[in-house]
Structures are given as structure tokens and as C-alpha cells.
Design a protein around this nucleic acid. Structure first.
Lengths: 111, 111
DNA sequence: CTATATACATAGGATAACTATGTATTTAGG
DNA sequence: CCTAAATACATAGTTATCCTATGTATATAG
């Protein structure tokens, strides 16, 4: 059994991969989407998300490409690769196991 | 809204507090209980749990007392204080919000 | 025309949990 | 009998994650 211990430290990776599974996005956009979808619970900083995306790209989970907007602004879009899709599937089951385990521990006492 | 960002990094504190809400326990025992209840998902190390218990005691969330067993072994028991009980209540609602937020993000895509 | 929002990037710092190591006692196995 | 493993505590040092701070550059609002 035994889940990845890194999961304990954070769940940002699985959320980024999930966002990209809905469609290609750029970093700044992902920060806003995360904030919106989570109802202001997650407000990732740029200093958090960009290095994370670079790491995911280094692992081959995502691929990036530049795109220019009509206003002259450049954006770096990220796309989920097949490897990333597999990674997401694994992380998802880890997440489920993890939450179930915590709930077993914290639910079942009389406060 | 916005939950405690430290929650992202781990949920050990809430689990230790929850264990103690069931009754007084000593550190080594809590490691075993956590492993048992979680179905081998959590196998906290001594290097993790002892400093954590010391920190919780420093915060006034738990109180400790030594007890000798009949075999001559000494054990340091921890008891949840009223402050700890309040802390547990807060952490519990944070945990619920946190899980709900992650699920909103990761559930709702087509893989 | 200046402040804010957008959009990228990285160096350095804080913190949580782990590894490694130490002490001491009890129990199980060869 | 004696050594290994389990019990029970403790802490120093390492690693990894996320944040803060800072930088560049363009577009938009007041």
C-alpha cells in the first residue's frame, strides 16, 4: 500500500495536472482558475507555479509552446502529455487513498 | 475564507490531536495507532512525532506526564488540553474546506 | 503619465517531515 | 547465555516544498 510521502507536503501538482486535463492553459491563467474554482481557497503565487510548471515539463508530464496575443502580449501555454495523463491518474488514486486514510484517523473520536 | 497555508504541507497535527481526543497516549503508541487505523498509509517516524509533540506541548495544546510500567519501562503520556480541543475543532473545519477545495479542482475534468 | 494588471522568470528564505544517530530497557531466538 | 529486535525516548542535520522578494516587459485605467 503506502502512498507517496510527497503527497503529504502538497497537492499542487495534481491540481495543475487536473487543470490542464480540461485544456491547454498558461501559467498566469492557472493561478486565476485555481483561485476561482476553489472559491479563493488556493491563491498560488507566481514564484510557486512557474518553477512547478518547469519541473513538470522536465519530467515530461507537460509540454509548452509560446503564443502571441493580438494585443502584443506573449503567453506560454502548457499542454498535458500522455505521460502527464498517466501521472494524473496515479496522483488521483493516491489523493483518494490519502483523504480516506486521514478521515479514518480524524473521524471516529468523540470531541 | 482562505485556509491556513501550513495545512497544505501536512496534516499530521490534526491526526495527533484526533488520536489524543480518544484518550491519553504516549508517542510510540501513537505511531503504531496511526499505522493501524490508517491501514499502513501513515508510518510516522520517531524523528517526526517527538518534535511535533514537543511543539504541541509548547503551544499548550497537549500536556505530558511520565508513567512507569510494571516491567520498569517509562512512558511519557500526552493529554489533550482544552486549548488543544479547540485547536482540533478549528483544524477539522480547515481540513474539510481544504479537501472540498481540492476535489472541486480535480473533479470536473474529462481524463 | 503614473499606477495597476498582465505575463514571464529566478534567487533566497522559511518550514515541515525525514534520516541518522544516540541512550536505555525488555523480550525473543539461536 | 548472549545477541538481535522491539520498545521508548530524544535531537542534530538534511531535504523538499512553497513563499517572499525581486526583476523584466507590455497593456490598460485613472
Amino acid at each position: 500500500m503506502k502512498i507517496n510521502k510527497e503527497l503529504l507536503k502538497g497537492s499542487t501538482q495534481i491540481m495543475l495536472l487536473s487543470l490542464l486535463s480540461r485544456g491547454d492553459m498558461y501559467g498566469y491563467q492557472m493561478i486565476q482558475e485555481l483561485k476561482l474554482i476553489s472559491g479563493n481557497v488556493f491563491e498560488l503565487k507566481e514564484g510557486t507555479i512557474y518553477p512547478l510548471l518547469h519541473a513538470l515539463e522536465g519530467d515530461g508530464a507537460v509540454a509548452s509552446y509560446w503564443k502571441d496575443t493580438s494585443e502584443g502580449r506573449r503567453r506560454k501555454y502548457y499542454r498535458l502529455t500522455d505521460a502527464g495523463r498517466m501521472m494524473l491518474k496515479d496522483r488521483r488514486s493516491e489523493w483518494t487513498d490519502y483523504v480516506a486514510a486521514v478521515n479514518k484517523v480524524i473521524g471516529g473520536e468523540e470531541i
